[in-house]
Design a protein around this nucleic acid. Structure first.
Length: 927
RNA sequence: GCGGAAGUGGCGUAAUUGGUAGCCGCACCAGACUUAGGAUCUGGCGCCGCGAGGCGUGGGGGUUCGAGUCCCUUCUUCCGCACCA
């Protein structure tokens, strides 16, 4: 019988499903191991060959760990709330749940074809009420919690209320809004319920507040910072503007330091850690106050270079700064107002693109320098961002390039403050010199000056040391339909949680998925959707990241109706040991998940500070587009003649994308091409060497570029095992690479060779029970060792190569020994499980037990040879073969070396200086 | 501009982590078998050279008996952030 991937793979996929082979339970003595994939959003396009790359790697890893005796949790589910299904619903009127269900079924079918070892009994979908009940529940925990800076953790809100009742707001250090009230216990008790609630809202981890948000008019919703890329929406690329709105937010900034520190404790790719660090953006500096006597007020600025304070020649406010209008003098009002109007008109995108032009306006007012008391001009300019620091900066032209350019442009003074500064051409921010023109810090070093200035400013009450973060709180509400309803109702304009036993708050039916006429979100269309028929529910829904920020817990105990997961399950599975997914989630999902994990930990639901111990980013698989070259006639119109790549420069041509599925090794199948479209029916070709060669280009894989390769097609032709091996063989897992079907035959051939090892020339099963030879053991144990080493360092591509070498050797040895083949297919079964299961059965084992078979133990003695020859160099130059025994000591080796005739001739009477040994093997002789 | 990753045959890649550069596969070439297939098998395949031999890991320099690997310098590509005070 020949290798028939179709029947084998269908058979074993059905077997695994029927026997629930990969169902996992917690009641076992085995050590646990949790392997997680980033669950997909089920889009309408289905999977292309790029999507399963990470899933294949995690499946190989899971199967390997299982074979090595671990109890492996390897689940899969769907992040099924999201924009595309809703956009489709708006266009067609079809309920997003219907589209989503259809897409999920398609995804499932495609995944099943690849032969993954998921425990499907644990499947979850974020859009199912059973699931989002707990997303809502977690929101409620965050609403009912505040962040105690003294304990450095989140604490239940009741404890804050208790402290207010006992001692007022005295002594409480919280991460909270800035406009909190100061009150005594007695005053607190006199507050009305509304007043108390309004005050508590300023402390809650999930809170409602008027804030500046990214508003995307085209999507009709606000977006979080990570959903805005270069000033446009991540989904759809629509323009985004800044707008003040009442919005739900999550107080992620309270966790900024812990999110930063945690990065040192997890095994993640360095680029990803760096991205999160930059996103959090911690900077240490000082807050300095510049008094404005005429307003009896101050301008607060944040600076990381307080040491340069004597170089301040002006102060700049963001145009949106609240003091601008009161500071502007009548003489300057026209200019200032027209400048504010001009910058307000600029979109976020324009403002970011235009960093070259210097612009600004003088307010006409002056602030007092906090140390010297001199007057400094107050300007406004859009290079100062309202959203960072205090929205105001002290300008030090000699030390900061932006201030320098601004000062040059508007003719403001530039004062050197260090004896090493060179400021003829540009600002010089160096910290190496001693200070000059700097009052009492003259002659000091950077560290001395910084310390002295902070002490001085504190003494004056005009400044203090301050740590600032770039990260903002995460906007949590979305004015969309297809998401989790926020479990909140409004009474007297204030938000209250619904009762826990009324969860889930079900997503109501609506007649259309568009905002209401009065501009409310789609949920405003729901008929009679009121809490206890009295109060209005919150109409916005949760953002896409809500459901994915805790899902790894739900897999631990997916059917639990009492808890998001039982204590027992959480104690057993703890956290994710290995997480595989794309780096595009660096500042979104991966940060939010760490955030929610910490909230739940603080509130006592588990003990793990970090959710994902080790993380691997699989590289993106790009498309490899193929092109044909249509010849243009004299008028520049397309003819029906196409010229092969090598000859195209002789003609005037236009490249056209051609479906990569009718191109083989860059050679076009001209018959299929003609049949592909009616207007190509009479196409003619100018060939080279009798072939039509296509041009290629690496692009994103997409339908419009005709470069999408569907895993189903590959599987139909070569089988799932070939697809799995080939995706790994393509290159290092973490590297981005284009998909190229050229070369897949090599992997397919390999599997056929494996199959033939078990069969004789006539295709009959042929297995010998003889004792294997040394050479056969050597081939086997090399692959056992190699695969083990490779899997632990996630180098799957080199393992596939090693399998090929091993099988080539065994083929050459005509090895059909049971002892060798059985162990070989156990090792292979993580990579190519279907063929391994089939061969396992052919060897007479019981069906479906290979996944849990005794994994072969590597025995180094099979790789050791007692005597062997290898090349050795003398003084790194001449190379000669030496025969040595491995177990000799170095003295004995030296004697052999010196007695060698070739060595003696080369030494020509010189003395032997030393022998260079590497791992017990001599590789160089120095004379 | 700042931060990160990476440059090796015609192509994807490998190299025991400082030790015979190019494993494995694709493509290509030659041969075998074949009523010819986009099949299978065998051999060859970095570059120059008939050859012995020489050169060779983006370029230049250095450390070392020995460098794809370490150091300095420079170029190129990709990714992330981007007026962050």
């Amino acid at each position: 019988m020949e290798y028939n991937h179709k029947s084998i793979e269908k058979k074993w996929q059905a077997f695994w499903a029927d026997n629930a082979t990969f169902k996992t339970s917690e009641s076992t003595e085995k050590p646990k191991y949790y392997v997680l994939d980033m669950f997909p959003y089920p889009s309408g396009a289905g999977l292309h060959v790029g999507h399963p790359l990470g899933y294949i790697a995690s499946d190989i890893f899971s199967r390997f760990k299982r074979a090595k005796g671990f109890n492996v949790l390897h689940p899969m589910g769907y992040d099924s709330f999201g924009l595309p299904a809703e956009q489709y619903a708006i266009q067609t009127g079809q309920h997003p749940s219907i589209t989503t269900e259809a897409n999920i079924n398609r995804y499932r079918e495609q995944m099943d074809n690849i032969g993954f070892s998921y425990d499907w009994s644990r499947e979850i979908r974020t859009s199912e009420p059973d699931y989002y009940k707990w997303t809502q529940w977690i929101f409620m925990q965050a609403f009912d919690a505040w962040y105690d800076k003294k304990e450095n953790r989140a604490v239940a809100i009741e404890q804050l209320v208790a402290r207010f009742e006992k001692a007022g707001s005295q002594g409480i250090e919280a991460e909270c809004d800035e406009d909190i009230l100061i009150f005594t216990a007695e005053e607190w008790k006199t507050f009305s319920v509304e007043e108390q609630q309004r005050e508590l809202l300023k402390y809650r981890l999930a809170y409602l507040k008027e804030s500046t948000v990214n508003w995307c008019a085209a999507l009709g919703t606000v977006l979080a910072n990570d959903e805005v890329i270069n000033g446009v929406s991540e989904r759809g690329g629509f323009p985004v503007e800044q707008k003040k709105m009442m919005q739900w937010s999550m107080r992620i900034t309270a966790y900024a330091d812990r999110l930063l520190q945690g990065l040192d404790t997890i095994d993640w790719p360095e680029p990803l850690i760096e991205m999160q660090r930059n996103w959090i953006g911690k900077s240490t500096g000082a807050l300095v106050k510049f008094p404005i006597p005429q307003l009896d007020s101050v301008i607060e600025v944040f600076t990381t270079r307080v040491d340069t304070i004597f170089g301040v020649s002006f102060v700049v406010l963001a145009p949106e700064h609240e003091l601008v209008s009161s500071l502007t003098t009548d003489a300057c009002r026209d200019q200032v107002e027209s400048y504010i109007e001009k910058t307000a008109k600029k979109s976020e995108l324009d403002r970011m693109a235009d960093t070259k032009t210097v612009s600004g306006a003088f307010t006409g007012s002056y602030a007092k320098h906090p140390i010297t008391g001199e007057d400094v001009q107050i300007w406004i300019a859009d290079y100062v961002l309202a959203g960072y620091g205090t929205g105001a900066v002290m300008a030090v032209p000699s030390g900061d390039q932006r201030d320098y350019v601004f000062a040059k442009h508007f003719g403001l003074p530039i004062v050197a403050i260090s004896d090493t500064q060179e400021i003829e051409e540009a600002a010089d921010p160096n910290k190496d010199g001693r200070y000059i023109n700097s009052g009492f810090i003259n002659g000091m070093t950077y560290n001395e000056a910084t310390e002295a200035l902070i002490a001085k400013l504190s003494e004056l009450g005009l400044g203090k040391a301050k740590v600032n973060f770039r990260m903002r709180d995460a906007i949590f509400g979305r004015q969309r339909y297809w998401g989790e309803p926020v479990p909140v109702f409004f009474k007297d304009g204030l938000p209250y949680l619904i009762k826990e036993d009324e969860l889930p708050l079900l997503l109501p039916e609506v007649d259309k998925y568009l905002p209401t006429e009065s501009g409310e979100p789609p949920l405003g269309r729901a008929q009679g959707w009121k809490y206890q028929d009295k109060y209005e529910y919150e109409l916005s829904t949760m953002p896409g990241w809500a459901g994915s920020s805790w899902y790894w817990f739900r897999y631990m105990d997916p059917q639990n109706r009492e808890d998001f997961a039982s204590k027992k399950a959480i104690d057993y599975w703890k956290s994710v040991d290995l997480y595989i997914g794309g780096s595009e989630h660096a500042t979104g999902h991966l940060l939010y998940s760490r955030f929610w994990n910490k909230i739940l930990k603080d509130l006592g639901y588990h003990n793990e500070e970090e959710p994902f111990k080790k993380l691997i980013n699989q590289g993106m698989i790009q498309g490899r587009s193929s092109f044909v070259y249509r010849i243009l006639d004299d008028e520049g119109k397309g003819t029906n003649t196409f010229v092969s790549l090598g000859l195209k420069d002789k003609y005037n041509t236009i490249p056209l994308h051609v479906d990569v599925n009718i191109v083989h090794h860059d050679v076009l199948n001209t018959d299929k091409f003609k049949a592909s479209r009616p207007d190509y029916q009479n196409a003619e070709f100018i060939l080279e060497d009798g072939k039509y060669i296509c041009g290629t280009e690496v692009e994103k894989m997409s339908k419009s570029k005709f470069n999408v390769v569907n895993p189903d097609d590959i599987i139909a032709q070569f089988g799932a095992d070939t697809l799995r091996l080939y995706e790994m063989f393509l290159g290092p897992l973490e590297q981005a690479k284009p998909w190229n079907t050229n070369g897949i035959e090599g992997v397919y051939k390999f599997l056929r060779k494996v199959w033939r090892l078990f069969h004789d020339g006539d295709g009959n099963l042929s297995i010998s029970d003889e004792t294997p030879t040394k050479a056969e053991y050597k081939a086997l144990h090399r692959i056992i060792k190699k695969v083990e080493e490779d899997i632990e360092r996630f180098s799957f591509n080199t393992s596939v190569s090693a399998f090929m070498i091993c099988v080539n050797e065994l083929t050459d040895l005509k090895c059909n020994k049971r002892a060798i083949l059985q162990d070989l297919i156990i090792v292979l079964s993580s990579y190519a499980p279907h063929i391994a299961e089939e061969l396992w059965l052919l060897l007479g084992n019981s069906a479906g037990t290979i996944s849990f078979a005794d994994y072969p133990v590597f025995k180094p003695e099979y790789l050791v040879e007692s005597e062997f020859a290898y090349p050795v160099s003398i003084n790194g130059k001449m190379k000669m073969n030496l025969s040595l025994a491995l177990d000799l000591d170095q003295k004995a080796v030296q004697d052999i070396v010196l007695s060698n005739v070739d060595v003696q001739r080369f030494m020509d009477g010189k003395a032997l200086k030393k022998l260079i040994f590497v791992k017990g093997k001599i590789i160089n002789i120095v004379v």
